[in-house]
Amino acid sequence: MTAHATVSTADALRRFPELAELVAIRDAGWNFHLLRNEDGSLLGLAASYSQQQYTDAVFVFDRSRVVANRILADDYGGGMVWFKDGNDIQEVVRDLRALPPPGAPGAPSLVIRSSSLWKP
């Protein structure tokens, strides 16, 4: 059995400062889950935060591939109203966290429809 060393948050941020936004959302109460493929190998990390009206989610696949979205709850129209695919973890997470809540001025409200060419 392989022992895994524990790395403190401070040590992780010293080595990988781009993780600061992930630490911030963890501290704000977001839920984190590891994403694994069929053979159990790690694909990435998912983080989500749900409110009555919406769920915000971030998917980190590596240091240069991160995707985020906001999805409205069915009772509030349903569907994805914001999406960003980028290569800067901090930028993508900050942009998502800067979104106003649904119904507030400047909040995204148009549902983004997927096309038959869209692949998750």
Rank of each mutant, 00 (worst) to 15 (best):
I89D: 00
H4R: 15
S64K: 11
A104V: 06
P17V: 07
G29L: 08
V81D: 00
G78S: 14
F83E: 02
A73D: 05
N69V: 04
G103V: 12
D39T: 03
D39L: 04
S50D: 08
A3H: 15
K84C: 00
S50R: 07
R15A: 09
R97C: 05
I112Y: 06
R26M: 12
P17W: 07
R70F: 07
F16E: 03
L42D: 08
Q52F: 14
D75A: 14
Y54V: 05
D95A: 02
L110G: 06
G77A: 09
E18M: 02
E18H: 04
V81E: 01
V58G: 00
D75N: 12
Y54E: 06
R113P: 12
P101S: 09
E91V: 01
Q90V: 13
A10L: 14
R113F: 13
H4L: 14
P17E: 06
S109Q: 14
V67L: 11
G40N: 03
N31K: 11
A3S: 15
D74M: 04
L13F: 11
K119E: 09
A20F: 06
A47N: 02
L19G: 06
I112E: 08
L22C: 07
P105W: 09
L19Y: 11
A104W: 09
F59D: 00
A12F: 10
